[in-house]
């Protein structure tokens, strides 16, 4: 996977939510790989996602997708083409 130099927050959130939905609860180190993000950026994004209720912390420092996260994932998938057309890099 090639690393992109700048990405939209929506794109990063989409990658994280898709990984969590597909693989179940994951630790931050695994999410780094799935979201293709350095650790500091991933921590910032996860903190914001926890605040928004998109993910929740489970035991053993793992993160899981919430019901609100699933709803966000559905809307993000539906809006993917529009967002990319408007210049958001997903």
């Amino acid at each position: 996977m090639t690393r992109r130099k700048y990405r939209s927050q929506a794109g990063i959130i989409l990658d994280i939510l898709e990984a969590l939905e597909r693989e179940g609860p994951l630790p931050a180190t695994r999410l780094m790989y799935h979201a293709n993000l350095p650790y500091n950026r991933l921590k910032e994004t996860l903190a914001r996602m926890l605040e928004e209720g998109l993910v929740e912390e489970t035991g053993e420092k793992r993160y899981a997708i919430t019901q609100r996260g699933r709803e966000a994932l559905r809307v993000l998938r539906e809006s993917r083409r529009i967002l990319e057309s408007l210049g958001y890099r997903l």
Binding site: K5, Y6, R7, S8, A10, P38, R41, R89
Partner: peptide
């Protein structure tokens, strides 16, 4: 809406 990853600049977006 964009964030820098790997030393890039979000201005380019």
């Amino acid at each position: 809406s964009h964030m820098e990853v790997d030393g890039g600049s979000r201005l380019y977006a």
